[in-house]
C-alpha cells in the first residue's frame, strides 16, 4: 500500500497521459486534439522532472563549504526544458495549421472536414 501511495507522482503521470491520449483519439475538434496532445506531453515532462528528485536533495548549486550536500539531479530538468521548447513549437505549428484549415474549410471539426473532402 505504501508503495502505491509512495509512487503517487507516477500515478499522476499515468492519469494525465491517458487523459491526454484519450482526448487526442476521441475528440474530432482539432483544437481539442491539440490540447489533448499538450496534456499528453505534459505528463512526460512531469515524469522527467520527478525523476530528478533526490530525497533530501537541494538545488545543485555548489556553495563553498557544503561539498557533501545532497543535490537533486539537474540533468532531467535540463533535458525537459528542451522537450518543453519542442512541445511549444509543435503546438505553435499545429495551431498555425488549424488556422489554415479553418480558412480552407471553414471548420475545425475533423468529421466535417472529411465530409467536405468527400464531396469533391
Amino acid at each position: 500500500m505504501n508503495d502505491l501511495l509512495g509512487l503517487y507522482s507516477y500515478w499522476i503521470v499515468i492519469v494525465l497521459m491517458m487523459a491526454g491520449f484519450y482526448v487526442v483519439i476521441s475528440s474530432s475538434n482539432l483544437i481539442k486534439k491539440i490540447a489533448g496532445l499538450n496534456i499528453f506531453q505534459t505528463s512526460v515532462f512531469i515524469l522527467y522532472i520527478s525523476m530528478g528528485k533526490v530525497d533530501g536533495g537541494t538545488a545543485p548549486i555548489v556553495v563553498e563549504g557544503s561539498s557533501n550536500a545532497i543535490y537533486s539531479n539537474p540533468l532531467p530538468h535540463v533535458l525537459i526544458l528542451t522537450a518543453i521548447v519542442v512541445g511549444v513549437a509543435t503546438t505553435a505549428l499545429a495551431l498555425a495549421l488549424v488556422v489554415r484549415i479553418k480558412e480552407a474549410y471553414g471548420t475545425v471539426d475533423e468529421e466535417a472536414i472529411s465530409e467536405s473532402d468527400n464531396e469533391l
Binding site: 491520449f21 487526442v24 496532445l37 499528453f40 506531453q41 532531467p76 509543435t90 499545429a94 475533423e110
Partner: peptide, 24 residues
C-alpha cells in the same frame, strides 16, 4: 495537404513522445 499535415503532426508527435518516455 493541410489536414494530411495535421494528421501527420498528431501521429508524429505521439511517436516522438513515446520515444521520449522510453528514453526517460
Amino acid at each position: 495537404a493541410l489536414s494530411a499535415a495535421f494528421q501527420y503532426l498528431i501521429m508524429g508527435t505521439l511517436g516522438a513522445t513515446f520515444y521520449l518516455i522510453g528514453i526517460g
